[in-house]
Simulated scan of single mutants.
Amino acid sequence: MHLGKWATLLSVFWLLLSGYIQPLLLTFGVISVFIVLVVLKRMDAVDQEPKYAGAGYQTIRYFTWLLGQIALSSLHVTKLIWGSSKQVSPALAKIPVANIPPKHRVLYANSITLTPGTLSVDLKDGEITVHALQESSIEELKQGQMEKKITEIWGKNK
């Protein structure tokens, strides 16, 4: 069943990227989707864990929230840069990530990096080293709002 979803997803993606509906190009598209499905089927046989296309509602919720955070941070960084240079107070700190499941820690670190004004420098031993343009950004991360949102959407034990 999940191969059908992957076939649909890959076919639509291929059509959107190519933009051409000509017999030769459609044939190449069908062949490439078929090859990917064969590889996916073989991978499923080896690891006994089928990979499902999309996570549905969780993914939509997460990306909607993340885009909002990126927009808000962009406005904040713009005000910070255009304002007085006294407001810029670069900081480097370690943020604990013990409450986030190991497989979602990279998602958390990337979310920090995608948010303007902050950068995940290292993820090691249950801590993320973060650089920020303003020390208040580090304090917000330490308060755990982003961590709570990720564990709320993706679950603590998933």
Results as ranks from 00 to 15, higher is better:
Arg42Cys: 14
Leu26Ile: 12
Trp65Lys: 06
Val97Gln: 01
Ile35Asp: 09
Val97Ile: 08
Leu72Met: 14
Met1Arg: 15
Ile60Asn: 05
Val46Ala: 15
Trp82Cys: 13
Thr59Leu: 03
Gln134Asp: 07
Ile138Ala: 04
His131Glu: 10
Glu140His: 02
Asp47Arg: 13
Tyr20Arg: 11
Trp14Ala: 07
Gln69Pro: 09
Leu9Asp: 12
Pro116Phe: 09
His131Gly: 07
His2Thr: 08
Gln69Met: 07
Trp14Thr: 06
Lys124Ser: 14
Tyr108Phe: 04
Thr115Asn: 09
Val77Gln: 12
Glu140Tyr: 07
Thr59Gln: 03
Glu49Trp: 11
Gly68Ser: 14
Val39Leu: 04
Leu10Met: 09
Gln48Trp: 10
Thr64Tyr: 08
His131Ile: 05
His2Pro: 13
Lys103Trp: 00
Glu152Met: 01
Tyr62Ser: 02
Leu17Ile: 11
Val38Asn: 06
Ser74Tyr: 14
Asp122Gly: 04
Val130Asp: 03
Asn110Lys: 01
Val30Cys: 11
Thr8Lys: 15
Gln22Leu: 15
Val46Cys: 13
Gly155Thr: 00
Phe13Ser: 09
Gly4Ala: 14
Pro101Ala: 07
Glu127Val: 02
Pro23Ala: 10
Phe28Ala: 13
Glu139Gln: 03
Ser120Gly: 02
Asn99Ala: 07
Ser89Val: 10
Gly68Pro: 07
Leu3Phe: 13
Leu40Gly: 02
Gly68Phe: 15
Asp122Val: 11
Leu72Thr: 10
Val106Thr: 01
Leu24Asp: 15
Leu37Gln: 06
Ser74Val: 10
Ala53Ile: 00
Lys158Met: 05
Leu119Lys: 06
Leu107Tyr: 02
Leu114Glu: 03
Ile100Tyr: 00
Gln134Ala: 01
Pro102Glu: 00
Val121Cys: 07
Val106Gln: 00
Val77Phe: 10
Thr113Cys: 10
Ala132Gly: 08
Lys124Tyr: 08
Lys5Phe: 12
Glu147Cys: 13
Val106Phe: 00
Asp47Lys: 10
